[in-house]
């Protein structure tokens, strides 16, 4: 039972990826658009999917890897259940954004750009989320924490991470 639902779910992912490639006539320049779809379908750039895309778009494997690792938006590893994005735009930075980041790194024992080993939390940094008047800003699963203090964010992240260990 379970296996079959998994397979059909998988099928849907491949169909999505294929649809994107078809929409662009399987042209090589569709690579970035297709990688966006792969990431939406899998949550990250799955290696098998990369091989599939390379073959279908007739792009060398190394070029696919080169593009996938050039752009920040693409993740090469599975992401956590929750994500926290700390804004490091100019306004956030001068209002203490980096201290917010440090507090989260310490509380969750994870570095920016990484995911906790239990896959509960991915910590990301953004160049600017465009909410400068709320600085410093952190996003917890898209919920905005404005004028964030290190204590607040540490507590918030602690809830997610503690949840797991208990």
């Amino acid at each position: 039972m379970q296996t079959s639902t998994l397979v059909s779910a998988e099928d849907k992912r491949w169909r999505l990826i294929r649809a994107t490639m078809r929409r662009h006539g399987f042209a090589a320049n569709a690579l970035i658009e297709t990688l966006h779809t792969v990431q939406e379908a899998f949550g990250y750039l799955d290696e098998e999917a990369l091989r599939y895309v390379a073959k279908e778009l007739r792009i060398p494997l190394s070029r696919v890897y080169g593009v996938a690792t050039f752009y920040n938006h693409f993740a090469m590893k599975p992401q956590g259940e929750h994500h926290c994005v700390v804004c490091l735009g100019t306004a956030c930075y001068i209002r203490g954004g980096s201290r917010v980041l440090e507090a989260i790194e310490k509380a969750a024992q994870v570095k920016a750009g990484e995911t906790t080993p239990d896959k509960k939390l991915s910590l990301l940094v953004a160049r600017c989320v465009g909410l400068c008047w709320l600085a410093p800003v952190a996003l917890f699963d898209d919920e905005v924490a404005s004028e964030a203090t290190p204590e607040e964010v540490a507590q918030k992240v602690g809830e997610w991470v503690d949840h797991v260990s208990s």
Binding site: E33, H36, F70, H73
Partner: peptide, 8 residues
Amino acid sequence: VRVGAGAY
């Protein structure tokens, strides 16, 4: 429309 992927 083409969507970027995070590269300044």
